[in-house]
C-alpha cells in the first residue's frame, strides 16, 4: 500500500512541485495550504508522514507541529523551510528532520525515504 505524505505549505507552486516529485517517488500525496488544514488532514486522512513549512500565515509551522504531535506523536514530521536559522529553535527538535528548501529536491526525497526506513525498522 502506498505511503501517504501530507505537504503543508502556503505557496501553491511549492505544493505543486513537491506533489509532482513525491508522486514520482511513489507516494500518495495530500496537500494543505495552512496549519488548520494540515491538522484536519492529519485527523481525517491519517498520513504516514508530514512535510511542514515553518512559515505560514495564521498558525505557523512550529505551532502546527505541536498540534500535530498532540494528535499523533508517532507521526514523522519533516520541516522544510527557506530559513536556515530555525534549526536552533528547540521546538523544531521535535521534528524528525529539517531540510532547507532547495530547487534540488534530492535531499528532501532522500530524507523522506530515510525517515520511512527508520520507522520501518522501529515498527
Amino acid at each position: 500500500m502506498k505511503k501517504k505524505v501530507l505537504i503543508a505549505d502556503d505557496e501553491v507552486s511549492i505544493r505543486r512541485l513537491y506533489e509532482r516529485e513525491l508522486k514520482k517517488e511513489g507516494y500518495e500525496v495530500l496537500t494543505a495550504e495552512n496549519g488548520q488544514e494540515a491538522i484536519q488532514q492529519v485527523q481525517n486522512q491519517k498520513p504516514d508522514l508530514v512535510i511542514l513549512d515553518i512559515r505560514m500565515p495564521g498558525m505557523d509551522g512550529i505551532q502546527t507541529l505541536s498540534r500535530i504531535l498532540e494528535e499523533n506523536n508517532e507521526l514523522p514530521v519533516i520541516i522544510s523551510t527557506a530559513y536556515s536559522s530555525y534549526k536552533e529553535n528547540f521546538m523544531s527538535w521535535a521534528a524528525d528532520a529539517y531540510v532547507v528548501k532547495s530547487s534540488d529536491l534530492s535531499e528532501l526525497k532522500s530524507t523522506v525515504r530515510a525517515v520511512f526506513e527508520q520507522r520501518n525498522v522501529l515498527l
Binding site: E11, L17, T81
Partner: peptide, 21 residues
C-alpha cells in the same frame, strides 16, 4: 537576511525544482 532569503528562495525552489522535474 532570513526574510529576504525566504521570500526569494521559495519562488526559486519552485522555478528550479519544476525545471528539474
Amino acid at each position: 537576511a532570513a526574510y529576504v532569503s525566504h521570500e526569494i528562495r521559495n519562488p526559486l525552489v519552485a522555478i528550479g525544482g519544476l525545471a528539474r522535474s
